[in-house]
Design a protein around this nucleic acid. Sequence first.
DNA 1: GAAGATTGAGAGTTCAATCTTC
DNA 2: GAAGATTGAACTCTCAATCTTC
Lengths: 182, 182
Amino acid sequence: MGHDQGMSGRPDPIKLAMANWESRGWDDEVVGMAVVTSVMRVWQLLNAQVEAALRPLDLTFSRFEVLMLLSFSRTGALPVGKVGERLQVHPASVTNAVERLEREGLVERRPNPNDRRGVLAVITEAGRRRADEASDVVNRTVFGALPLDRADQEALVRLLERMRHAFGDFDRAREAGDGQII
Amino acid sequence: MGHDQGMSGRPDPIKLAMANWESRGWDDEVVGMAVVTSVMRVWQLLNAQVEAALRPLDLTFSRFEVLMLLSFSRTGALPVGKVGERLQVHPASVTNAVERLEREGLVERRPNPNDRRGVLAVITEAGRRRADEASDVVNRTVFGALPLDRADQEALVRLLERMRHAFGDFDRAREAGDGQII
DNA sequence: GAAGATTGAGAGTTCAATCTTC
DNA sequence: GAAGATTGAACTCTCAATCTTC
């Protein structure tokens, strides 16, 4: 993650890659390549910022997401399977994240009363406090401090939404939900 | 990646998150949150596509990038430090990737004649063939098949470029380079 | 002493296999 | 037999420490 690299005196790596791609005659794919590479790069930069902001709170972005998901849920409890579904990660990753959160007392694991195969992840009071601190710092240092004006941010979200939808990331028919999480 | 998740019948997770954010009164940060979350999600989707396309060729995206970088370089050889610099990854990651590529005979490691501390990664003939196959499949199945029209793709690249530049990802003054990689 | 690269530890991810319960 | 969750193996990434050479 960004292990301090000089931040200037460097030509745009994407531009270089595009020139290389064109030199091979891949003219039809060069823009797509630039899209994918740009997303990868911006992900790298944003991810590093978020992780750096959360490190003092002993959280990673994925554990932060789990914590926020639970804190937004009606009862503060969710089957771990549901968590993976919402976050689009492998069940094993959720098991891992919950265990890590449990180790710090931010989450508890409880048998699901409705299904004895299942396990509920329940956020604790300490977990709620940590979630508040974490969202504060991330809001302040990352989300609220992006180097793009509001119009550009909205345009970006719209373009990415178009892409997510084409990839089946969500179902437009049910988009009129009430924002209820679970 | 993406261990087959149902791809519909699901409301937009970003919209849900935005509603939750607003319910906490974080109105100024909600768009920034949407930007970051959207990038993360699209990264996940694109990364999964690229990795799936490359898996039959025994490559990951990072190893693919190393291979392409070497294949584009003038002599097919680059100090491993330079590779990490261009790809913005930790030196240890390059060591790992090169070792993995070397194991398959796609790259060779040679002492740098100009600096006895240094190591050169050199692409082999097999490496060049693999790089060709890999770029073919990635161009065909991902870069050339994005579900966005050209205008949207270009707009997306421009917005992401603005963001990368603001984060110091490159230096605009040297942007007029000739596309020469090394 | 600083730079180039590697090593070992620690954390995260995915996959395949497994165990329990539906 | 299928679904929910966990476990162990294999990878990748980062960081701190180390070794060699400038």
